[in-house]
Each structure stands twice: as structure tokens, then as C-alpha cells.
């Protein structure tokens, strides 16, 4: 009998042991092809996942809000489970998935940190740091109004890799970071050096953030840098002033503004205590508005219920 000649038991044992060996192997040659790993890495960074499943309730992310979060790896691994469940027709594929899921996760995690670099065609792919992904959701008119908004996260002074930065909708921004940041900076895109003020829409009053002018010479207020408010942690000194009254709108009362600025400067930060045209121009420079969130210092900032 030909059928019984073949030693099936030995064969099954052989297959099982080599599967076991392959799944427990720590060798660097991982099983997935590059395209598949990239696809799964995109999936694990939630590309294509409906927003309703990321933010299940609108009250989690009201308008004009920012929310920080950790990424639940178990959740993203379930996405991968679901994706690799496609085409499981028999116990053969099932056994395969059972044997290889950990190595697939590991390969996806490795790909994940390089994905943004691949998409941007740069070579600076990141490294898996400690496997913790974090991120933020920002829903605001800032997102729709400043398309070139820059977000930088860092931990202990080292910049964290941005794994994904995408708009989920016109006014909702999603950022994912590789690691747990202690500082997140929001930088207004610089559209050329120009001058302006900060105000609410159509307001008659406005404010100007004070910038150092390199005085005193010991460098307490470096030139061009916003001056920290000694009374408010994480805050910056600002002078407020108003527009010139009268029939014609929008005229800045320069003399009032200059004296308001002069009164707010810490002592010694102005040469001879007066603001000169060059120094005034430095105060008025607009183009790189800068909002920083530092853990422990000004974060969590507010509940704003």
C-alpha cells in the first residue's frame, strides 16, 4: 500500500518543529516581505482606521481642544490580527498565524518607526526606543488656518521621531510620537519675516510678546527670544495695547504701544531703558508664534470644562 508507505507522522513532526524553530528564532531575517510589512505598519499607525473608532465619542474631542494620549499597542496588534486573518481557510494558515504573530508584530514595530522617513523619501528612519507610542489630537481652527503648522516633541532635550502627522479632517490634526515626550512645541509656520500683532478676531485690543534684545550683556535675555514671565510658569511676558480709536479702524497707536512695551520690559533688558526703532521692530516681528507644553511645568494646562 503506497499510502501507508509514507511516514506522515514523521513529516508532521518535522513541519511542527521547523515552524516552532522559525517562530522562536531571533534571527534578523524576518519573514514578511517589505511591501506587506509597510502595509501592516501603516495599519498599525492607524492609516485608514475610521475616526469614529479612534475617538468614539464627540465629547472626547470637543472643538478647540487638544488631547494627549498613549497608543494602546494591544489595540493596534488586534488590527494586525484582523488583517492577517484574511485568507485563513484551514488549520494550516491558522497554525501559521499562531506561530508567527509575535515575529510579525516585531517586524511591524520596526517598520513603523521608519515609515514617515520612507514616505518623505529621507533616510533618517528612527529606531524603536522603548516601544511606547504617544500622540496628540488637536481639533482647532489653528489646524485649518495654518497648514504649515510645525509640531516638535522632545524628551529630556532629545527630539522624538514623529511617526505620523496627518489631518483627520479639515480642522483635526493627529500626531503620533515614538516615545513619551516631556515637551511639545507648536510652531507657527514662518511665511517670511513680517510684522504684526496678536489679537482675537476683530478685537480692538491686542498683545505683543516681549522678545529679548541682547541686553543686559550677560545674556539674561538673549536677542530675539521670548522673555519668560517670572510670575507665571510656562508663560511669557506680553504687553497689551489697543488700536487707535476714531472712525477709521485698524490703526495701531504706535506711541501707546511703545510705552506699554517699555513698561513691561524687565529692568536692564532695554538699553538706556528706552525702546528704539530697531528694538521695536524685533518686538513686532511675527512669523514664528511658539506655544510650548512642558510636562510638569504648564501641563496639564487646563480642563476648560
Amino acid at each position: 500500500m503506497i499510502k501507508s508507505w509514507r511516514n506522515y507522522e514523521a513529516l508532521h513532526q518535522e513541519v511542527a518543529s521547523s515552524l516552532l524553530q522559525a517562530s522562536e528564532s531571533t534571527s534578523t531575517t524576518l519573514p514578511l516581505t517589505d511591501e506587506l510589512a509597510t502595509w501592516l505598519a501603516q495599519l498599525s499607525l492607524l492609516y485608514g482606521v475610521p475616526v469614529e473608532y479612534m475617538v468614539a465619542d464627540a465629547r472626547l474631542l470637543p472643538t478647540e481642544s487638544m488631547r494627549f494620549f498613549y497608543v494602546d499597542r494591544n489595540w493596534t496588534n488586534r488590527l494586525i490580527d484582523g488583517a492577517i486573518s484574511v485568507g485563513v481557510l484551514s488549520s494550516m494558515e491558522k497554525v501559521f498565524n499562531e506561530a508567527f504573530f509575535e515575529r510579525i508584530y516585531a517586524q511591524v514595530n520596526e517598520k513603523q518607526v521608519q515609515l514617515r522617513a520612507i514616505l518623505r523619501s529621507t533616510n533618517n528612519g528612527g529606531q524603536v526606543v522603548d516601544g511606547t507610542l504617544t500622540g496628540l489630537l488637536f481639533r482647532s481652527q489653528v489646524v485649518s488656518g495654518w497648514p504649515g503648522l510645525e509640531v516638535n516633541a522632545s524628551a529630556k532635550g532629545t527630539a522624538l521621531d514623529l511617526l505620523r502627522m496627518d489631518r483627520l479632517s479639515d480642522n483635526t490634526l493627529l500626531c503620533l510620537f515614538n516615545g513619551i515626550p516631556d515637551t511639545v512645541d507648536f510652531i507657527e509656520p514662518g511665511e517670511g519675516l513680517h510684522f504684526g500683532i496678536n489679537r482675537e478676531a476683530d478685537a480692538d485690543t491686542f498683545n505683543i510678546y516681549l522678545r529679548g534684545l541682547g541686553f543686559p550683556k550677560d545674556g539674561a535675555y538673549p536677542a530675539g527670544e521670548q522673555i519668560k514671565d517670572p510670575d507665571t510658569p510656562g508663560g511669557y511676558l506680553q504687553a497689551s495695547s489697543s488700536l487707535r480709536g476714531g472712525t477709521e479702524k485698524g490703526v495701531v497707536a504706535i506711541t501707546d504701544l511703545v510705552s506699554s512695551l517699555e513698561s513691561k520690559f524687565p529692568s536692564g533688558a532695554l538699553e538706556n531703558g528706552t525702546l528704539t526703532p530697531g528694538g521695536f521692530a524685533v518686538q513686532m516681528v511675527q512669523g514664528a508664534g511658539f506655544q510650548q507644553y512642558v510636562f510638569g511645568e504648564n501641563y496639564p494646562i487646563c480642563e476648560a470644562e
Binding site: L61, F68, E188, D202, N207, G289, I301, C302, A304
Partner: peptide, 27 residues
């Protein structure tokens, strides 16, 4: 159309009636 400036909008996140800045939690 007027929108207010970047820094004001960022600061106003904390004003009453706006969403605030915190962790992603159900209030």
C-alpha cells in the same frame, strides 16, 4: 476672513467653552 492670531487661538484653548488641553478622557 478674520480668524484671530495663532498664539491667541492656542492660548484660548483653555478658555471656558473651549475644549482645553488634557488627556484623552471622557469628561
Amino acid at each position: 476672513a478674520n480668524r484671530g492670531s495663532f498664539l491667541n487661538l492656542m492660548e484660548d484653548l483653555c478658555k471656558p467653552g473651549r475644549g482645553g488641553v488634557k488627556l484623552l478622557q471622557m469628561p
